[in-house]
Design a protein around this nucleic acid. Structure first.
Lengths: 189, 189
DNA sequence: ATTGTCAATTGACAATTGCGAAATATCATT
DNA sequence: AATGATATTTCGCAATTGTCAATTGACAAT
């Protein structure tokens, strides 16, 4: 809970009573591995702050194959932000890759905080643009690197995450097949 | 100028006097082909709305090779938004691929509009998250498609743009070499 | 017309990665 | 411990793409 506050304070100012109010609105929730926090086609009713576990944001091809856009883990917000803010249908699925624990804010409470706390919206637009910019840069960088470079970069940037996610999901994030990833791992280790 | 207002109105509400104020703050500026609107390492002092021409957002490798992250053309905003908002050094270059004309807002005028027009900030955070989400989805999609599919998708999504940009830049956006792009074009046409 | 410059194409070859199938490994359940 | 389900590794081969070098094309300056 403290971590949530510290995270928010990186992006703007909040006094003690505002922090207390935020903590009142945040509710703990567990999400079982393999289930979805949010689904494509449905409006995202909640935004979550991950306190434990790993999610992946993914979509499916016509043939049912899944592709991982990115992972979200401890001390980051997880949500389809455009769906949540404008109440539009989500474009993607948010799947719990491990058993997860999050602090959820409902749309109603989130809106209430926007009205009560000046700067709340600003904090979130900063978080959103900062995080998205990084995600975009990451996948744009990957496009011009070979598979091994992408894998090494992942190891370096997300140490420990490799052991928490299935290789097939990592492969689909890296834009390669599970076989390829397996070959690469062999040459590295 | 009308197009700017229409664009903004897609993301929020503005009354007539607010629109007039915005138009007062927007200044026409020409940017010559091959020059930079914004440079890596420098703080972005302006945000631009493209009325004519094509920009590319790019970066350079140690060896001087350039990589194109994405293109921005008519009726879209162009800026390193995180640099502009938080006055941090830019991460990338914004280069005029053709001769360009833009409507610029200085940081000072932009801030003034934020204070004068309630909702101005909201409009921009919506534009930012909407646009970035799309950029991110685009490059994430590209990662799992082969080069020809990426090229066809580009043709379909940005009709006419191919003829306005050098193939080398398009290739670096698609994440392939100029040779590869040339071969692909040959098989298509 | 000629030259120079830069962009785009082409070709030969090498390296990377995908594909499909089979073999192992891992893990949960009984 | 045995079973079954799923994940991962491995293999051979095919397809894609990169690299490097040479050629061609377009266009401006002389």
């Amino acid at each position: 809970m403290e971590e949530l506050i510290n995270y928010l304070l990186q992006f703007g100012q909040l006094n003690e009573s505002q922090c207390a109010l935020i903590q009142l609105k945040a509710h703990r929730k567990k999400i079982k591995k393999g289930t979805y926090f949010s689904e494509a086609g449905k409006v995202a009713r909640n935004i979550g702050y991950v306190t434990d576990g790993v999610f992946r944001i993914c979509y499916y091809s016509k043939t049912g194959e899944s592709f991982t856009r990115y992972f979200v883990y401890e001390n980051r917000f997880v949500a389809d932000i455009n769906s949540f803010i404008d109440e539009l249908p989500s474009a993607e699925y948010i799947e719990a890759v491990t058993d997860c624990e999050i602090l959820v804010f409902s749309k109603k409470d989130f809106t209430e905080l926007s009205l009560t706390i000046p700067g709340w919206s600003d904090i979130f637009s900063k978080i959103t643009s900062y995080v998205m910019e990084n995600k975009m840069r990451a996948s744009s960088n990957m496009l011009v690197q070979d598979a091994q470079t992408r894998y090494l970069h992942f190891l370096e940037h997300y140490p420990g995450l490799t052991n928490r996610i299935p290789q097939l999901m990592l492969a689909s994030y890296l834009g390669i097949t599970a076989s390829s990833l397996s070959r690469i791992r062999k040459t590295i280790v």
